[in-house]
Write a protein that binds this DNA or RNA. Structure first.
Length: 889
DNA sequence: GGTGTCACGTA
DNA sequence: CGTACGTGACACCT
């Protein structure tokens, strides 16, 4: 179709395409970020551009933008392009964002004072054609048709959206308008252009105009022969000749602008991956980000990727008897980077690397590595050490001396953006992209990195991140990392390897009970409304509730009205007497409960290992506050509140060879931390008294003797106390306690009357965070809060609540991690056979070896209660039983 | 097949 | 309009 020898110049009218994209997509209602920023124009434009890059494979690329509505055309004719209405507020700002995205993609964009984007396109097209380019002009303005010739093609968006572009060459223009491209402006001048607010000659349409042009060629010539034209059209032409002349002047595009870039300057360049991630990430365009990055990868494979590859040191494959000497010869101040290779579940070797040398130790040579791996004084550096320690352990190898984990390091330095993969961290810390092979491809474009080269990337990342961590501003982070996170890694690895024993029979029995229950509720729900419906589909439920049953609308969600348990409870209350509606609602709620629990059981059953135990995975830096998270499966959300739920809990048992489970949890640790941090004398006193906290607080808030605090009073105070640490306001408090906002307000006032320092503290935390940009736990763990100074109210309020909660939740997490280290150390010291198995934020679960109960309880209680020295005691509650539920206290 | 939304379990 | 998480079903996208 096109001359493959010719370079292709693709130039796009940014403004008009962005505008069309906006209108095509705005009605979908998608394309809004959480912060309320519309992104239709950015998305639509980039979509179109990526498609063009793929289809047309241009070698050169540029985008032109209007600078403002003002141009030399408006100077001549003030009404030019008038009447277009105000720019929708949702559109404004998107052009700037689009330009940011283009900059990040290294796509040149051009503006020119007093001229329109089309003039820039005209100039570039003229230069490009002259310099031997095949030129593709993408414009939503028909005036661009005048640019078409053998070398220049116009792609014009069809009525619907921007993804469909119609290709106009000379023949296509002639077929449609019966004039050749260079004559198109003559035709447009006579007919007029409504979009530009340029009226043409009355009663002259394209057919008449084309006829005249065929005869005389140009507007000037036609006007010169105006006397020869008969009829109304002729009359109008004579009377309105100035219109035609003016239109012709205005619609002539300028082809000789002085521009900062010529066609050759627009050669395509690789994208700036970091910047692209930043810009598109902020716009919450995940899919688009992937598409753009993919584009970048194709580029990288051709250019920079090859460079990065060649810089990696040659990989030496070691035989068993060469390993020790090779390691001894390496200079690696931080430790040697290690990458354990597992393929298809099988241990497949180990990669080793310093900054300058890499080696691969295949399984056959592992005997030469065994001692070094187990040597605690031989420093090793990992990305994700815990997993690798476990993989090695499965293969009968013990790894000690993990002195760095770059992922955890990254998580401490930047707790809101923990790198998920080594590639992510390479990108973030080294600002280069690590080649990754796509395992789904039969013949990968990028060959898989061997473990040795992976280790080389780890070594370099470690070097970079360690340098950051070593700076004075990060002294606190360094301490948290060195003293808490690093030593915790082998402790967690041990817990994950041990897993927790499960009684399959208990799970299966409960699953069957729930299955029957779900079926009963399902049938009852269908009977109530007279037809079947997918009870698991919020969308279908909305139809039933609000259309069929005509129930009053509930809280709004992004896609409709909420059907969550709270909303359904409200609906239930709005129904006066028992009817189909209330029966449906009740059945639905019960069905939800049953299916939720049933599903949970099924997930647990699937994750039981061949050893009859469940091995969760903890993410040590999984939460921005410093808490851990648990996944595959999540054992930190096992039900406890309902009777049915607790039966699931009772399936967690002591394994064979152990006498029982022991649970130990911190009592009201967050409230205690709040008392400590705020220094509130009343609250500190409450904890030192050691009596029922909520009763004590209630007696002070309501001014009655502790013995006279009613359950209702205690409840209110309890909700208030807990809510405080989450930034609960009168609205939320009222909603939770089902009281009026005025009452909630009063309760808060009374509360702070007695415990005013708490309020002061919470206020100060936010204030401090605002000026510092971060919060800090008692142990110096920091969490950044960039949104605290955002002009966006919602964003700012959310950040304020998270900020006031962060030191509290985070300090509690620190204390628990420190306690775990102490417990693990003492258990090892005492050579106990008992094992620490699970952590659920403020609770630890142990498997008790025969005869060790007392000793274990002593270690656990002591280590937990002394993990930190606060102005209030850290009280620990211990329970023992055959299963997790029974071990509760 | 991948992704976002909703709902819901825990501390 | 209460913090911190992970998971699964559904609905919609490509």
């Amino acid at each position: 179709m096109s001359d493959p020898q010719k370079p292709t110049l693709l130039i796009i009218d940014g403004h008009s395409l962005a505008f069309r994209a906006f209108f095509a997509l705005v009605q979908t209602g998608n394309f809004i970020t959480d912060e309320g920023q519309h992104t239709e124009a950015v998305y639509g434009f980039l979509s179109m551009m990526l498609r063009l890059l793929k289809d047309e494979e241009p070698t050169h690329l540029g985008v032109a933008f209007d600078l403002s509505r003002k141009s030399f055309r408006t100077d001549e004719y003030a009404e030019y392009k008038e009447g277009r209405g105000e720019t929708p507020p949702e559109f404004s700002g998107q052009v700037g964002l689009l330009q940011d995205a283009l900059t990040a993609m290294n796509v040149t964009w051009i503006t020119k004072e007093d001229y329109e984007a089309d003039d820039i396109l005209a100039t570039l097209a003229a230069q490009g054609a002259q310099q031997g380019f095949r030129v593709l002009v993408v414009s939503g303005d028909r005036d661009s048709f005048q640019l078409i010739d053998d070398d220049v093609t116009v792609l014009y968006p069809s009525a619907m959206g921007v993804t469909e572009l119609k290709r106009y060459d000379a023949q296509a223009v002639f077929d449609k308008y019966k004039v050749w491209p260079h004559q198109y402006p003559e035709l447009a001048a006579l007919v007029g252009e409504k979009a530009d607010n340029l009226p043409g000659i009355d009663k002259v349409g394209p057919v008449t105009a084309a006829k005249w042009i065929a005869q005389w060629g140009t507007v000037d010539e036609i006007l010169a022969h105006a006397d020869e034209i008969k009829g109304v059209a002729g009359n109008n032409l004579r009377e309105q000749r100035d219109r035609a002349e003016r239109n012709r002047r205005l619609n002539a595009l300028v082809r000789d602008l002085d521009l900062p870039y010529g066609p050759v300057d627009l050669a395509r360049r690789p994208i700036d991956e970091v910047a692209v991630r930043e810009v598109l990430g902020a716009l919450q365009m995940r899919t688009m980000l992937d598409r753009v990055l993919k584009l970048g990868q194709t580029d990288a494979a051709a250019t920079s990727g090859a460079i990065a590859r060649s810089a990696a040191p040659e990989v030496r494959t070691l035989a068993a008897d060469e390993v020790a000497a090779w390691i001894a010869a390496q200079d690696a101040p931080l430790g040697l980077a290690v990458s354990v290779e597992v393929e298809g579940g099988e241990f497949a070797g180990v990669g080793l690397s310093s900054l300058t040398a890499s080696a691969h130790v295949p399984v056959t040579a592992l005997d030469g590595l065994r001692d070094w791996l187990a040597d605690v004084s031989a420093p090793k550096v990992f990305f994700g050490a815990k997993r690798q320690l476990e993989d090695a352990e499965h293969a009968g190898l013990t790894i000690r001396g993990a002195v760095h984990d770059t992922r955890v390091m990254g998580g401490i330095l930047s707790p809101t953006r923990v790198p998920a993969t080594l590639g992510d961290q390479v990108l973030g810390a080294l600002e280069e992209s690590m080649p990754v092979s796509d395992p789904n491809q039969l013949v990968p474009e990028v060959p898989a990195l061997g473990p040795a080269t992976e280790a080389w990337y780890v070594a370099r990342v470690a070097d970079a991140v360690n340098a950051t961590l070593a700076t004075e501003v990060n002294a606190n982070a360094r301490r948290v990392y060195d003293e808490i996170e690093l030593p915790l890694i082998p402790v967690l690895a041990g817990m994950e390897l041990d897993g927790v024993a499960i009684d399959r029979g208990v799970l299966a029995g409960q699953r069957e009970v729930l299955e029957k229950g779900a079926e009963t509720y399902r049938t009852a729900a269908f009977a109530a409304i007279g037809h079947e419906v997918n009870l698991g589909s919020p969308k279908q439920l909305q139809t039933v509730l609000f259309d069929e049953l005509k129930l009053p609308p509930t809280r709004k969600t992004k896609t409709g009205y909420s059907t969550d348990a709270d909303s359904l409870a409200d609906l239930l209350e709005s129904i006066e007497e028992e009817n189909e509606g209330s029966i449906f609602l009740q059945s639905l709620l019960r069905h939800r409960d049953a299916t939720k629990l049933k599903q949970m059981i099924e997930t647990l059953e699937k994750s039981i290992g061949s050893d009859g135990r469940i091995h969760t995975t903890y993410d040590q830096v999984g939460a921005a506050t410093g808490r851990m998270s648990s996944n595959d499966p999540n054992l930190q959300n096992i039900p406890v509140r309902s009777e049915e739920g607790r039966r699931i809990r009772s399936a967690f048992i002591a394994g064979e060879g152990f006498e029982s489970l022991l649970t130990a949890d911190y009592s009201q640790i967050e409230m205690r931390i709040m008392a400590h941090l705020s220094g509130d004398a009343g609250l500190i006193e409450a904890f030192r008294e050691g009596e029922d906290l909520h009763r004590y607080v209630g007696s002070h808030v309501f001014g009655v003797a502790p013995g006279d605090v009613t359950p209702a009073m205690r409840n209110k105070v309890k909700a208030m106390s807990y809510g405080l640490a989450y930034g609960l306001g009168p609205f939320g408090l009222a909603k939770q306690l089902r009281i009026t906002q005025a009452e909630a307000r009063q309760l808060m006032t009374d509360y702070f009357e007695r415990f005013g320092r708490v309020r002061d503290y919470l206020r100060d935390v936010v204030q401090q965070a605002k000026s510092d940009g971060y919060t800090e736990t008692i142990f110096g763990r920091r969490r950044p809060f960039p949104d605290l100074n955002s002009p966006n109210r919602v964003l700012r309020d959310n950040a304020e609540r998270a900020a006031l909660n962060s030191p509290i939740q985070g300090s509690a997490a620190d204390i628990m991690k420190i306690a775990m280290l102490g417990v693990a150390a003492d258990m090892a010291q005492a050579r106990l056979g008992s094992r620490m198995l699970l952590q659920v934020h403020d609770e630890l679960i142990f498997e008790v070896a025969p005869g060790e109960r007392k000793q274990l309880e002593e270690i656990v209680t002591r280590r937990m209660s002394t993990a930190a020295t606060l102005d209030v005691p850290l009280t620990v509650q211990v329970g023992i039983g055959p299963d997790w539920d029974a071990a509760a206290h």
